[in-house]
Design a protein around this nucleic acid. Structure first.
Lengths: 161, 161
DNA sequence: GCGATTGTTCATTCAAGACTGAACAAAGAG
DNA sequence: CTCTTTGTTCAGTCTTGAATGAACAATCGC
């Protein structure tokens, strides 16, 4: 790898780290995504630890989390009992999915409160209902865009997962 | 205010605090939004501090931040030199706007890296380009939905700001 | 069996940043 | 002018949770 490319790779990985942090994830999770996305090849558990210079404990918890929300996936290699990880085909979409779920969750909580509020002449209930509707709309909007994206990928893309 | 409503109000304020935290804002910023949104009336600088039980320093920095991104706005009261704040009509939309800007920012940074990458036989550049396009699409999608919302509000709503 | 390797768990450490509160400037009120 | 009120600033404190690393169970090779 050229020195230039190595530098760009480091930049990209750090960018993903910061982006992840802003979305409420850990920097290490972002770096794992960045590394796998940039290189486009599977990395073993230990390789991730050494390559990123972090503890195996961190790799363990972060990969578990990333797998759980579909950002990366485990791949097996014959004659090797190590775990290998690769970027999921729908890694970026999965991040959006998490966002949608969060909005949906907030919507549900607000709706719960709205249901318990009794009409008392004030327009509190109306305002909060607007708040709930807003969150639900955004959640559904993202979910909708997401399915559209997936359909597009299935039709136009080469990898069928 | 009924005891029940007071309890629901506290729940809602705490919900907004947590929601704000997940979005990378401070809990206090969320509580200010929650309080103003629930009660639907302006609060003075000092009232905010005492009502939420936080320091005036926190109110100062948080209100500045919230005004800057259009979540709340200053209102004046004749014969009172205190600052009053009320929830902005487009508070919720503003939050989405921030999200869109963040995605746009990330898109720009990825594009910058992509531009510096030279073709070298690998498909790194292609993958990163996909990453950039994704972020840009989401940013534009949100921005688009936002303008649609604003138009709808202008047409169908009572408050013209 | 034994040692090496792999991944998980959890108590501890550490750092980022939220929050405080004292000091401050500005602007009435008296 | 002096005292009060109002909002800002910033150095210091405190809290949260990310990261570590030692201990552990499981599995492999020998």
């Amino acid at each position: 790898m050229s020195k230039d490319k190595a530098h760009l790779r480091a930049s990209f990985i750090e960018l993903m780290a910061k982006s992840a942090e802003r979305k409420g994830h850990t920097p290490i999770a972002g770096r794992i995504i960045g590394l796998l996305l940039f290189d486009g090849q599977p990395y073993s558990f230990s390789q991730l630890a050494t390559e990123l210079g972090v503890s195996r404990g961190s790799i363990s918890s972060n990969t578990r989390h990333l797998i759980q929300q579909g950002n990366i996936q485990r791949v097996e290699r014959e004659g090797d009992r190590q775990d290998y990880f690769e970027i999921s085909h729908s890694a970026l979409q999965s991040m959006l999915g998490t966002l949608s779920e969060e909005m949906d969750h907030t919507a549900k909580e607000v709706e719960l409160i709205v249901d318990q509020l009794e009409e008392d002449g004030t327009d509190t209930k109306e305002r909060l209902r607007g708040c709930a509707v807003f969150h639900r709309s955004v959640a559904e909007g993202i979910a909708h865009a997401l399915t559209r994206m997936r359909e597009f990928n299935l039709l136009g893309c080469k990898k069928p997962d």
